[in-house]
Design a protein around this nucleic acid. Sequence first.
DNA 1: TTTTGAGTTGTTCGA
DNA 2: GTCGAACAACTCAAA
Length: 489
Amino acid sequence: MKPVVVWFRQDLRMTDQRALAAAVETGQPVIPLYILDDVSPSHWRMGGASRWWLDKSLARLGHNLAECGSRLILRRGAAADVLDQFVTETSASAVFTQAAFEPWASALETDVHTRLLGRGVELKRKTGALLMRPDAMRTKTGGPFKVYTPFWRALRSGAPPTSPLPAPTSIKAPAHWPASENRHAWKLHPAKPDWSKGFDDHWSPGEQGARARLDTFLESALRDYGANRNRPDCPGTSKLSPHLHFGEISPAACWHAAEAEGQRLAAEGRNADNGLETFLKELVWREFSAHLLVHWPTLPELPFKPEYANFPWADDAAGLRAWQRGLTGYPIVDAGMRELWHTGWMHNRVRMIVASFLVKDLLIPWQHGEAWFWDTLVDADLASNAASWQWVAGCGADAAPYFRIFNPSRQGATFDPDGAYVRRWVPELAKLPNQHLFEPWNAPSLVLSASDVTLGVSYPLPVVDHAIARKRALDALNEVTKRRQESAS
DNA sequence: TTTTGAGTTGTTCGA
DNA sequence: GTCGAACAACTCAAA
């Protein structure tokens, strides 16, 4: 009997995996395949932190498949070529995959579909990476959404996401297993320097780790999610983003589990509606970003609002470097950038603060921040990353108003009130009292010396004066407004 | 077709 | 110290 291939991509799970389920359902032998594609043109090559995650996640998936009597075959190369050759090699009669929605991924699917069809083999695309097909969401006039809230309302008032499928209990093996490459030979870990050393302490990539994370979050943090998710000093967020990005858990599974926990809490008389709705909204932000990227494929490269095309950005290599290394002299910014470097992740509130600082205080193009996040985040996601950077920069869909410029000192004091977050990631300031922790340059010299801080030596002086930088940014943004008005009239 | 209400995440200033 | 208003106008989505 001819086998079928399951082409795994950003769906590295067994539960609620519709491509795998459909393949098992054929009754034919199933060959699971993952292709590392670093050669196909015009797609964003996976970043360093993501590759670290991928390595662990593939190991876990291979292990889970083995428990069902199956294997994960690894190949490398241009995905369309590899698949073409693989189908011939295995005499497969069909290829199943879960649809992806990045522009390059959709184009690749079309290419693969055409080429396989030439051999009489069908590519069967299943859904499941998102709650809804991003191209299926339409306003009542038939267009794509450009504002989040109507998108959320439309999704929330529609049918709930389909219930998750169980994992298959056994998977029919082929008579002969095709050869697999060795994962270790792919060298997915960063080298020179290996900055992934600390990642192991923070993450458990793979399906089991994802489910454990979800359960822990629902149990301990769902109820107060609305307020606590803004506190980088508390474990108030779900930290599911990398698991979701790699498809180790489906958004539908998260949605249904959260609703079930909400009902359970309500039955105990502990209302969790606020936390639940906020969490579901965050899942839907992920959908909204995918929706934008499907309809505006240049979102990762070009401003959504065209009048920003000639924004007077600064060419500031030294500023960019200080930002990347967490040496800007603004403690909350530096704490965030160092958390990112050490753990491959940054708290969402702090992402906004550091992004606002790069774009508005330093006037550095948002694409530089986007590129750095792409390389260093374990949850790097093309749609979310692009949409979020554009939102902060003011040039995105439903963008932040131009006058919304984060004050890093104020944000630090508000959302890290005890300074625990800053002290953890910027230990050279640990002895500073709270009142000076977010503005060390304003601390009296006696306080500084008593705290073993020498500004410009043990910790940098601020790279810019926020008050001046703020005025500069407002002026530049006013220019954009003026230009738009001129072109409109 | 026109109208209406509304829009994730903030800061500063002055009373 | 606290609080409300101002910071612009624009465009989207739906009635």
